[in-house]
Amino acid sequence: MEDAMQFAPSENPALATYSPEVRQQLFRFVLQLADTSLILGHRLSEWCGHGPILEQDLAMANIALDLLGETRSLYQYAAELEGQGRTEDDLAYLRSATEYRNPLLVEQPNGDFADTVVRQFLFDNFHYHFLKQLVNNADERLAAIAEKSLKEATYHLKWSSEWVIRLGDGTEESHRRVEKSIAELWRFSGELTIPTALEKELQTIGLIPEYADIQASMTAHAERVMEEASLVIPQQVFMLTGGKDGRHTEHLGYILTELQYMQRTYPGMTW
């Protein structure tokens, strides 16, 4: 938890220049990014102690911690943008499932190792290319958070890409399993780059990257990995959306029940 970057509130001069409306929009978007990293990080943390081998157990815990570090920086910034006195803990622990704005992909269950690898691969491919754009963002605070997270995301994408290749190009069983995971999870990948109304507005005023700009490099990377893995990219998949607007699959409620249990049961509790 010490990983999270600490910023003095005065460090972002842009904050004062945003209109209340833009500030509110940016708050909602930063919250969406924070929710996304938190939920995926939590999912990965569920592997802790259950990994297929010790080394991969640690690898997944490391990725979970990277995501949690990013989460904290984002929630802290969101809390500042909102300016209503809520803290990062309030935002993480005291919002209901319908208030969460993560895309559906990251809340999907861990399943078997192949499911986790494919979920991670689909997210990392987006995360990495998105952060690469975000480091040049007009909002300096977001750019700074992106710069730190990009190094981590680079490794995450390397990890998940290699595992997709190993499983796809491995044994009959590993190939069959990863193929099944792809068939199951691919339909959640589109939501990552289909802009919501909020995202469109922020893209129009140039405050967040255009997803169209990163789509080509995402597709190129996915094609390269899938080909090396002897796997086929599913075509004409109907993409499920809604998470970024608060309409979630059944899984999120269960995640939050566990994640928020302590704060809900013992409000204001600290370690």
């Binding site: 010790l54 080394e55 991969q56 640690l58 690898a59 490391n62 490794y155 390397k158 990890w159 290699e162 190993r166």
Partner: peptide, 13 residues
């Protein structure tokens, strides 16, 4: 390759 990545995760955290 996996050994190097595992080493990164196990020994350079």
């Amino acid at each position: 390759q996996m050994a190097i990545q595992n080493a990164r995760d196990v020994y350079t955290r």
